[in-house]
Structure formats: structure tokens, C-alpha cells
């Protein structure tokens, strides 16, 4: 097990899966270059990737090296901070005999490349990251050993990326089982209010049924802990002294803004009609 920590931005995984879906009909495995950054302590952040065409047959691998270099240059023109950090493979299982050959190529492009495999398995998408270590007898037979990286963070990225990811999830109906699109900001707040209402209802039901009215059944052992947590939540809402007043002034301001902007809209419409009349 290696101590390196790998953070993979969701956009990279999306691109890898898209690449797999767009592979040639006769192609089993898709590989490509991973771009990203190394930090001082050796951790790797993978933030971009592109597909590199290759063929593997009869224990030989042909990689389109020229195209890989070209594409790298093109990506560097957009973001010069991203360097080659490794390569990915999807489809065709985990590490196989061709992986070593491809890894050799990437070892020449960067020191200590990361290898990421993405494969759909029975219970989801399996995602693994490896680093390689050479082993064997010095000056005799040597080989490459792929050792898995323990800490792989996948739901990592910028705040805005997470907001985007959330929207994608909502549109696929992952959270609530039905597909949702948010046209207005108000819709989002409404849905999250509903959600928190549901959570509170579940909570109250749990407390009522398992703690307060547990007829015969034993009370859950962590009841004290649950109570303390709930108390902290309630205390975190600080009631202001002049609460009502602050709220009302805020409300007035916002209503004023709405009123003015609607007025402005009407003015615009009127003005236009009048100019077209004269």
C-alpha cells in the first residue's frame, strides 16, 4: 500500500466513462493521459484527462505517441499548471500484461506516474489507483509491481464543481428518485426546505417510537449522545433580541427591490411602445 493520496475531480471520471462509451466497436480497452498537479507532500490532484488511441495485440502495444504529445501541448495552452501525472485505463479489467508496457511509456513522461482503472463491476463502478515499484534481482530479471493506493478521493473538486455535480445528480433523479431541474432559485430552496422537513419528521418519529414510547423494546444505547447532538443543533440557532425588527427591515428592503425592478420592466416596455408610435 502506498501513502500517496489521490484526489480525482468528478469531471475526469465523467470524461473517462464518456470515452469508454465512445470507443471503437472492436476495441475493448480505452486508455488516456491524466493531467493534474502534484503538491509538496507528493499527493496528486487529477483534474483533467484526454484519450490516447492505442492498439494492443500479441503482447505488443502501439500508442499514438505523436497525438498524445500534440494533445498535451493543446491542453497546456489552456491551463499551463496541469502536467502529466499518469494514465487511465477503462474496460478490460484491472492491471494486465499490457499495462506494464504502457506504464513504461508514461514513466518516461513523468516521474512516478499514477495509474487509474475505472471499471463497472457487479456492485457499482470500481475505481482503483496504483503506483508502480520496480522489483527483481539487480542486473538480472526485473519487473514492475503495481501497488494500489489506499486513499483515493473521488467527490473532490472546487465548490462550483460540486454545485454542478449536484445539479447533474438532481437531473438524473439520484437524490429523490425523480428527475428534477431547477429553473429558478426559489425552486431549489423549496425543495431543500421540503427535504429538511422530511428529515425533521423522521427524527421526531424516531424519538417518539424508539426512545419515548419504547414499549418493551430496549432504548438505543447511544440515546445520550443523540440527545446531546440534538441540543447542539437547537442551540446553534441563535435567537436575536431584536429579531423581529431585523427581519422586517430586511423584508422591506427586498420587497422594495422587487417592486422597483418590476417598475423598471414596465417602464421599459412602455418606453419602447411609445418610441415605435412616434
Amino acid at each position: 500500500m502506498s501513502n500517496t493520496c489521490v484526489r480525482i475531480h468528478p469531471v475526469v471520471l465523467f470524461s473517462i466513462l464518456d470515452a469508454y462509451e465512445r470507443r471503437q466497436p472492436d476495441q475493448n480497452r480505452v486508455i488516456g493521459t491524466l493531467l493534474g498537479t502534484h503538491d509538496k507532500s507528493g499527493n496528486v490532484e487529477i483534474s483533467n484527462c484526454f484519450v490516447v488511441q492505442h492498439r494492443e495485440a500479441n503482447k505488443e502495444v502501439a500508442i499514438d505517441i505523436e497525438v498524445a504529445k500534440d494533445l498535451y501541448e493543446l491542453h497546456r495552452r489552456v491551463n499551463a499548471n496541469e502536467v502529466i501525472v499518469g494514465w487511465f485505463a477503462t474496460g478490460g479489467g484491472e492491471v494486465n500484461e499490457y499495462s506494464v508496457l504502457i506504464h513504461d511509456y508514461y514513466s518516461r513522461e513523468t516521474s512516478n506516474p499514477i495509474h487509474v482503472t475505472v471499471d463497472p463491476v457487479k456492485d457499482g463502478i470500481s475505481l482503483k489507483a496504483y503506483v508502480s515499484t520496480p522489483f527483481g534481482v539487480p542486473n538480472k530479471i526485473t519487473g514492475t509491481m503495481f501497488s494500489p493506493i489506499k486513499s483515493v478521493q473521488t467527490a473532490a473538486g472546487y465548490d462550483t464543481e460540486m454545485v454542478g455535480l449536484k445539479a447533474c445528480m438532481a437531473s438524473s433523479g439520484i437524490n429523490d428518485g425523480k428527475k428534477m431541474t431547477f429553473d429558478t432559485e426559489l425552486d431549489m430552496i423549496l425543495s431543500s426546505t421540503k427535504k429538511s422537513q422530511d428529515i425533521i419528521a423522521t427524527l421526531i418519529k424516531f424519538i417518539d417510537e424508539s426512545i419515548l414510547l419504547s414499549s418493551g423494546k430496549p432504548i438505543p444505547s447511544n440515546t445520550n449522545e443523540i440527545g446531546r447532538q440534538l441540543m447542539t443543533i437547537i442551540e446553534s440557532v441563535v435567537p436575536f433580541d431584536d429579531n423581529e425588527e431585523t427581519l422586517n427591515t430586511n423584508l422591506k428592503d427586498l420587497l422594495m427591490v422587487i417592486y422597483l425592478s418590476n417598475l423598471c420592466k414596465t417602464q421599459l416596455m412602455l418606453n419602447e411602445k411609445l418610441t415605435l408610435l412616434i
Partner: peptide
């Protein structure tokens, strides 16, 4: 409208 392929939906379930 945002669309996701089935594979990507599976991935998002994991990410979630």
C-alpha cells in the same frame, strides 16, 4: 436539460 448516460448515473450514485 442535463442528460447522463446510465454508466455515469451509476458513477454518480457512488459519488453521492
Amino acid at each position: 436539460r442535463i442528460r447522463n448516460s446510465h454508466l455515469i448515473t451509476a458513477l454518480m450514485c457512488e459519488l453521492e
